[in-house]
Every structure is written in C-alpha cells, then in structure tokens.
Amino acid sequence: MAMGHKAKRRWSLVILLLGLPVYIVVASSVVTWLGRPPILVELLVYVVLGILWALPFRGIFRGVGREDPDGRH
C-alpha cells in the first residue's frame, strides 16, 4: 500500500531529524577510522556515504516538497 502525502511528510521529517545526525556520526567515524585521508578521498567518502544513506529513503522524499496531489490538508 502506498503511503499518503501527509505520512510521507511526517516520515521525511523524522528521517531528517533522527537519521541525518546518525549519518553524520557514522560518516565522521569512518573518516576517523581511515586515519584522516587526503581531502579528496575524505570528500569522496562523505559523498558516497551520503548517497548510500539517502537511497533507501528516496521513495519517501520524492514529492514531499510539492502540494498534496489529492488536495487534502
């Protein structure tokens, strides 16, 4: 069953408020574990981890910024 627009908006907010800080801690830990690599490698690690973090949630984030297609409030 597809999620409604209102549910997507709520879940996206929860994911951003809880998931993003967790991503930041994990990404920083990975870079620290690598022993502070050169800046381009560090940037690549952050970009790859950011993409991997967002991929599972793309269905939830898709269309959240638009108006409700059903017109309900």
Score class of each variant (00 low, 15 high):
W53C: 07
W53V: 05
H5V: 04
D70Y: 01
G59K: 14
V48H: 07
L34G: 00
A54W: 01
V41K: 09
A54I: 05
K6T: 14
M3A: 14
G59D: 13
Y23F: 15
V22I: 15
L18H: 05
M3R: 15
P38I: 06
R58C: 13
V25L: 12
M1V: 12
G35A: 07
V14F: 03
P69T: 07
R72G: 05
L52I: 11
D68I: 12
V47W: 11
A27V: 02
I60G: 09
V31F: 04
L43E: 08
K8E: 08
V45E: 03
V45Q: 02
K8N: 09
S28I: 10
W11N: 02
G63A: 07
I51V: 15
H5C: 10
P38H: 13
D70G: 01
V47M: 14
L18K: 05
V14P: 00
G50R: 00
V64R: 09
L16G: 12
V30K: 06
I24R: 12
R58E: 11
G19D: 06
G35L: 06
R62W: 14
L43T: 13
F61W: 15
V31K: 08
L49T: 07
E67P: 07
R9F: 02
V41P: 00
S28W: 12
V22Q: 07
G71H: 02
G50A: 00
A54M: 02
I15A: 02
K6L: 13
F57R: 03
G59E: 10
H5M: 10
I15Q: 01
R36E: 14
A7W: 03
G63L: 06
H5R: 08
E67S: 14
S28C: 13
W11S: 05
M1Q: 04
A7G: 03
V48M: 11
L40C: 00
A7S: 10
E42G: 12
L17R: 01
G50S: 00
S29T: 11
I15R: 00
T32L: 09
V45Y: 06
H5P: 02
I60A: 08
L17T: 06
P69E: 11
L49V: 03
Y46C: 11
A27M: 03
L13V: 08
V22A: 15
L20K: 04
R10Q: 10
T32I: 03
M3F: 15
K8R: 15
R10W: 07
P21N: 02
D68W: 08
T32V: 03
R36T: 13
S12R: 13
V14Y: 02
M3K: 13
L20G: 07
R9V: 14
K6N: 09
A27L: 00
V41T: 12
P56H: 10
I51A: 15
L13G: 13
I39G: 03
R36Y: 09
V30M: 08
G71I: 04
L20H: 09
R62Q: 15
L55G: 01
L34K: 02
K8Q: 12
I24T: 13
Y46M: 09
A54P: 00
F57C: 03
V26Y: 05
F61K: 04
E42D: 15
G63W: 05
V41D: 02
F61G: 02
P69Q: 10
R66C: 06
P56A: 09
I24D: 05
S12L: 12
L34H: 01
V45N: 03
L18C: 15
A2E: 14
L43S: 13
G19T: 07
A27P: 00
G50F: 00
L18G: 14
A54L: 06
A2Y: 05
